[in-house]
């Protein structure tokens, strides 16, 4: 018997009588309604920055004011960001993204209870981009803030992505004596724009 069959046989022999899965319906009830406020409060609390803007023009001008955009490499798949960012990369060599300073990415939706934004492969240009960039900008529609993770997975449904990730705040570590340091291996900062 090969290892696979051996393990499966042992599992079958040892697993207990079938028990039922719980209902998750109750978790959708009685949740937060002031979603923008909650999202902003939570994400700010974990080191992110949130700004509500009227349109993409406002994002561009805010980014111009905060970064020397002409001196750094800025990548974005968004056509609305063409003025300040490049939207083409060479996927065969994600390593060459190592000098990206700013990545501007769209998120499908955000979650108020934990400040997380959901991104999937189709909108990333490359999987490593949101991690390898020094600073990460995410753009989410105000109406796409969901109360909890239950709503989040309801929205994701059975979408077929190759890769998807929740990002909540900048990369961080507290491994040295529990002192919080932002900018471990991923992006040093996260700025979320709510349109």
């Amino acid at each position: 018997m090969n290892s696979r069959d051996q393990i499966l046989a042992a599992v079958k022999a040892n697993q207990p009588e079938l028990t039922l899965l719980p209902q998750l319906d109750s978790f959708f009830q009685g949740q937060e309604t002031a979603l923008i406020e909650k999202f902003t409060q939570v994400l700010t609390g974990i080191g992110g920055k949130v700004t509500v803007v009227a349109d993409t023009t406002e994002i561009i001008s805010l980014l111009k004011a905060n970064y020397s955009l002409d001196q750094i490499r800025v990548i974005s798949p968004l056509s609305t960001m063409q003025e300040i960012a490049i939207n083409a990369i060479d996927n065969r060599h994600p390593h060459e993204l190592q000098n990206v300073e700013l990545a501007i990415l769209p998120a499908h939706f955000a979650v108020a209870e934990n400040g997380a934004c959901w991104l999937s492969e189709a909108m990333l240009l490359d999987r490593v981009l949101p991690f390898i960039t020094q600073h990460l900008i995410l753009i989410v529609n105000k109406i796409d803030i969901l109360p909890t993770m239950h709503h989040a997975y309801e929205k994701i449904g059975n979408e077929h992505y190759g890769y998807g990730t929740f990002i909540a705040g900048p990369s961080k570590t507290a491994d040295i004596e529990q002192s919080l340091v932002l900018g471990a291996h991923g992006a040093r900062s996260l700025w979320v724009f709510l349109i």
Partner: peptide, 18 residues
Amino acid sequence: TGQPITTYSSHFAKPRDG
């Protein structure tokens, strides 16, 4: 740790191309 969620919760469904 008391965080609302880890910074990254990554879902790997398929390998990268190639």
